[in-house]
Simulated scan of single mutants.
Amino acid sequence: MADLHGSRSQLPLLQQHKEKHFTAGDIVRDIIIGVSDGLTVPFALAAGLSGANASSSIVLTAGIAEVAAGAISMGLGGYLAAKSEADQYKKELRREEEEIVLVPDTEAAEVGDILEQYGIEPHEYGPVVNSLRKNPQAWLHFMMRFELGLEKPEPKRAIQSALTIAISYILGGLVPLIPYMFFPKASEAVLASVALTLVALLVFGYAKGYFTGNKPFTSAVQTALIGAIASAAAYGMAKAIQPRQP
């Protein structure tokens, strides 16, 4: 009776306590993947072509083609990855269902092993195991989450991931190409592209650090540095292998 009274007395506290957790982790991850590659790859391509003395129109054409191909490739990769996760979850779900039916005692022992890892004694987790055995659906979800570490994927996760990555790649990829739309000389456009893209990388890196729980300023500097190194390497390589004019 005391335990029941204590549980009831805690309900108002739980109702008053509102936790704010960030629950859009998968979407943010897809955005980070798309934007980071979208900013870096076309940036390096544009810098490399500029180093080869290509005209702004050629750089712009090649850049847009790369953005289109990259968005399709990255989006397809995101789709296949999410689809594989969903297929793996279904496969393991069927296996756990069979084990609960065919070897329930073994599965119950596994529940005990899992709970022991959290410091729960056998006489404490015994009622929990018995309760789960009376509710096969809850038992199944318990095993999927705590034994296999698998969460049920969203039904439309694969399509959502593909679209998010592809759109993010396009938005990121267009940033370094914007100057080439206004400067006919690639030598002038590349300077504006470097400045614009580095600013975008700093902003993106800061936002990435903020949402992922890392140090925003450190993340901003690291992201911008990676983009700068990639573009500088492409530009230098193009200059090095460019045939000399007679």
Rank of each mutant, 00 (worst) to 15 (best):
A2M: 09
L4I: 12
H5E: 14
H5N: 13
G6R: 11
Q10D: 15
Q10R: 15
P12N: 01
L13Y: 12
L14S: 08
H17E: 13
E19K: 13
E19H: 13
D26Q: 15
D30I: 02
I32G: 03
G34L: 06
V35C: 08
S36A: 09
G38N: 05
A44F: 00
A44R: 09
A46I: 04
L49I: 02
L49W: 00
L49H: 04
S50Q: 09
S50H: 01
A52I: 02
A54H: 11
S57T: 15
I58M: 12
A65F: 04
E66N: 14
V67Q: 07
A68L: 12
A69S: 10
I72T: 08
I72P: 00
M74L: 03
M74H: 01
G75C: 08
L76A: 11
G77K: 06
G77A: 07
G78A: 04
L80V: 15
S84Y: 00
E85Y: 04
D87P: 00
Q88K: 13
E92W: 06
E98P: 01
E99N: 10
E99Y: 12
I100Y: 11
V101E: 09
L102R: 12
V103D: 12
D105R: 11
E107R: 04
A109F: 08
E110T: 13
L115I: 01
L115G: 03
E116R: 14
Q117V: 10
Q117Y: 09
Y118G: 08
I120H: 06
E121I: 11
E121Q: 13
H123I: 06
G126A: 15
P127N: 12
L132G: 02
K134D: 13
P136K: 12
Q137V: 12
A138T: 12
W139H: 14
H141M: 15
L148N: 05
L150K: 08
L150F: 07
K156G: 10
Q160L: 09
Q160A: 09
L163Y: 00
I165A: 09
Y169T: 01
I170Q: 03
I170P: 00
I170R: 07
L171E: 05
L171G: 04
G172N: 05
G172C: 11
G173L: 00
L177V: 02
P179L: 07
P179T: 03
Y180L: 02
M181D: 05
F183K: 13
E188N: 13
A189T: 02
A189V: 08
A192Y: 06
A192S: 15
S193W: 04
V194A: 15
A195V: 14
A195C: 06
L196N: 08
L198G: 08
L201F: 09
L201N: 01
L202R: 06
Y206M: 03
A207K: 00
A207S: 07
A207C: 09
A207D: 00
F211I: 10
F211G: 01
T212M: 11
T212H: 04
G213L: 04
P216V: 04
F217S: 13
T218L: 15
T218M: 14
T223S: 14
A224E: 02
L225C: 10
A228T: 10
A228Y: 06
I229E: 07
I229H: 06
A234L: 07
G236S: 14
M237Y: 11
M237S: 12
A238H: 04
A238M: 11
A240G: 04
I241H: 05
Q245T: 09
